[in-house]
């Protein structure tokens, strides 16, 4: 939810740093893939680019549940360490971005990422770029052929106080965007205290054992195993 500042203050927004985090409530996700579609529309991506990908997971009881997987924005990011040219970097708000004007396309980061969150631009992006298109790490639209792209937590939205495309597209309010500094999270309808949301629902981080310290938390609830948490 955008925070409404008085006009005078909005001109010079407070310089408070945020530390972005995401919470995904698996109890609510119904696998409609609206988040994926919204992401692809926002970033002019082809169908095969699922920066937030919804997996259907078979659990041991024979049932299944849905699990959206964005970039985990790891605090100890394996992709960041292996990049030979520092095209992948972490912002001071904890978001991992890719400078596609520097990336050489070696795909080492794709081998390193334990979540398969990175996508290589084998071909040109589907839509012809607008004549004003100026891709930057904060707004990588259109994607650049021969380089690697991935979920960038819509920093082009959050910088303006807007929600990431996937969060606002989710009709089930299963996706939350939060700030660890202010300890607040919102799914577009409700705004809650982030720490209570995580604690009360036994949130876990995927593949916690790898030590990557993801900024994305999951809330289990369909009988799936609680990992890490």
């Amino acid at each position: 939810m955008p925070i409404a500042f008085p006009q005078a203050e909005a001109a010079t927004p407070p310089k408070k740093k945020r530390q972005w985090a995401m919470v995904i409530d698996l109890r609510r996700c119904d696998g409609c893939k609206k988040c994926t579609e919204a992401c692809q529309t926002t970033h002019d991506l082809p169908q095969t680019f699922e920066w937030i990908k919804v997996f259907e997971v078979q659990d041991k009881q024979g049932g299944s549940y849905f699990m959206p997987r964005p970039c985990m924005h790891c605090e100890n990011a394996p992709c960041l360490r292996v990049c030979p040219v520092a095209a992948t970097f972490k912002t001071d708000e904890g978001v991992i971005l890719v400078d596609q004007s520097r990336c050489i396309g070696c795909r080492m980061c794709m081998a390193a990422c334990p979540y398969g969150a990175r996508y290589f631009n084998f071909a040109d992006p589907p839509k012809p770029p607008s004549p004003f298109a100026q891709p930057t790490p904060e707004h990588p639209v259109p994607q650049i052929k021969g380089t690697v792209g991935k979920c960038m937590l819509c920093v082009h939205n959050t910088v303006d106080g807007k929600l990431p495309a996937c969060v606002s597209a989710c009709g089930m309010q299963a996706l939350w965007i939060g700030d660890l500094v202010e300890d607040v999270a919102t799914n577009g309808t409700d705004t809650v205290r982030l720490s209570s949301l995580l604690k009360d629902n036994d949130a876990f981080r995927y593949k916690e054992e790898l030590g990557t310290s993801p900024r994305v938390y999951y809330i289990a609830g369909h009988g799936q195993a609680l990992q890490g948490a």
């Binding site: 990049c83 030979p84 520097r102 990336c103 050489i104 021969g146």
Partner: peptide, 18 residues
């Protein structure tokens, strides 16, 4: 490489940890 034209970046921006 996806961008062989940028091979020289490996020297320009070399990250010793990679």
């Amino acid at each position: 490489l996806g961008r062989p034209d940028r091979f020289v970046n490996i020297i320009r921006y070399a990250q010793i940890g990679s």
